[in-house]
């Protein structure tokens, strides 16, 4: 049976992982390669490396980092952050990324999804959507959630699928950071609307939230950052927990 995937997400700035990390057994928790390998050994199913660098100079560091990650990691990984052209994506493919995620650039230039799917295959293209529920609408935001757009979550996700996205990575801005669970209602609706896999992001706080996102939210994969980095949730224990709840995990 196809397993539900657990995906730790690492934010990278200038070649280093950011966000406070308190691993006891790691000499250098700021090293994305070492941290990625640690997660892979613990049973993470995939990893996402998100480049949050602000400058072009730092971005160059990212491509060489991606190559180093590809040399060391024996599980699939996605890279994202600042990818706005075929050339950007190609550089990361060349460096060894299995998938790229595009967000703001896809909103402003939806043809980019078609072009990337055609050039590299749908399996390479993850469309990330940040959305915030305002009254009855899920409003798509760009620029790390700073800018509201006229796009709505469900219609935009469908459009992305039709244009050739291989997966949708949906982050609920209402739930992100609150540690009160994922946006299961919206996720379930996405699941029924789409034929491609949905990765849930935003809201993980405890083990039960992961069970809920798979059973109620029907997500194919769940992504989280800080709960893993701060050691609040360990990947092996999470897998044991989910297995005890009869959820299919690796």
């Amino acid at each position: 049976m196809l397993a539900k995937r657990i995906i730790p997400c690492l934010d990278i700035k200038d070649g280093r992982t950011v966000k406070g990390i308190n691993f006891e057994n790691m000499r250098d928790a700021g090293d994305p390669v070492a941290l990625g390998e640690k997660y892979a050994k613990e049973g993470a199913d995939e990893l996402v490396f998100l480049d949050i660098s602000a400058t072009q100079e730092q971005r160059k560091t990212f491509a060489s980092l991606v190559n180093e990650i590809a040399h060391h990691l024996n599980i699939p990984f996605t890279v994202g952050g600042g990818i706005s052209s075929i050339a950007d994506a190609e550089k990361l493919l060349e460096a060894g990324a299995d998938k790229v995620s595009i967000n703001s650039s896809a909103v402003y230039n939806p043809d980019l999804i078609n072009e990337m799917a055609k050039a590299f295959g749908s399996q390479f293209v993850v469309v990330a959507i940040d959305a915030k529920k305002e009254v009855n609408n899920w409003v798509v935001h760009t620029h790390g959630g700073k800018k509201a757009t006229d796009k709505r979550l469900f219609s935009w996700a469908l459009e992305a699928q039709e244009r050739g996205a291989g997966e949708i990575l949906f982050t609920s801005m209402n739930h992100d950071g609150a540690k009160q669970g994922f946006a299961n209602d919206a996720l379930e609706k996405l699941h029924h609307a789409l034929q491609i896999p949905v990765i849930a992001s935003g809201g993980a706080g405890d083990y039960g939230h992961f069970m809920d996102v798979f059973t109620l939210g029907k997500a194919d994969a769940a992504l989280a950052a800080s709960v893993f980095h701060f050691g609040e949730i360990s990947v092996p224990e999470l897998k044991t927990y989910l297995r005890s709840k009869l959820i299919s995990v690796r």
């Binding site: 049976m1 196809l2 397993a3 995937r5 199913d45 291989g166 034929q195 896999p197 994969a221």
Partner: peptide, 10 residues
């Protein structure tokens, strides 16, 4: 079921 078949399977 979703196609492509993507992810971990036994």
């Amino acid at each position: 079921e979703k196609v492509p078949h993507m992810g971990w399977n036994t």
